[in-house]
């Protein structure tokens, strides 16, 4: 039902991605690594990536944190404010799955639960890439963005093997 041509949109923003940093109650480690990626050693402006101050200007949201109860309504509002296509890069183990706080009383446990809430509120998300790490290295952030843009291939895949005798 999505009226957005994702491939076309990705081609259009490929060399100039405006990102907005959305923290839903993370410990700051991923957040300072995002900032680190902007500074000389990693310099993501090489890829045309620029941090902007409002989700209304953003092509991509850098999402961190396990989504605390207090921040939930505000996070939903921020994502709703983003124009389509909504691209989200979920950074850090907290965002991906709730991390070490996945089942506490004051967090909802990561992006998957948030996606359900977004759906209930009629907010569609067009593409999500999960980037595990605790915290995510600046290189991992770059890799995630490049994966989202289709520049690099995904390395991990689901594996289930049967234990065998050595």
């Amino acid at each position: 039902m999505s009226s957005v041509n994702l491939a076309r949109a990705l081609r259009a923003i490929k060399r100039s991605v405006w990102v907005y940093h959305l923290n839903s109650g993370s410990c700051n480690a991923c957040d300072i690594e995002i900032l680190d990626a902007l500074t000389p050693y990693f310099d993501v402006e090489r890829f045309g990536i620029k941090l902007v101050g409002s989700p209304r200007h953003a092509d991509l949201i850098l999402f961190t944190g396990p989504v605390t109860r207090e921040s939930l309504p505000k996070v939903v509002r921020a994502i709703r404010a983003m124009p389509r296509p909504r691209l989200i890069l979920v950074l850090g183990s907290c965002g991906v799955s709730g991390g070490i706080w996945w089942d506490t009383y004051s967090t909802i446990g990561g992006f998957k639960k948030l996606e359900e809430v977004l759906r209930e509120n009629g907010v569609e998300v067009d593409r999500v890439v999960y980037v595990p790490g605790c915290p995510v290295r600046p290189e991992a952030i770059i890799y995630g963005i490049l994966l989202l843009l289709g520049v690099v291939e995904q390395k991990v895949k689901k594996v289930e093997v049967v234990a065998s005798e050595s």
Partner: peptide, 27 residues
């Protein structure tokens, strides 16, 4: 515990961005 809707919601109505930081910080 279930959510309780209260009258006095944060007074940031009309501003969609909420308490977020563009550079690094927490909400």
């Amino acid at each position: 515990p279930p959510r309780v809707v209260r009258e006095e919601l944060p007074e940031e109505v009309g501003i969609p961005v909420g308490p977020y930081h563009p550079a690094l910080h927490e909400p």
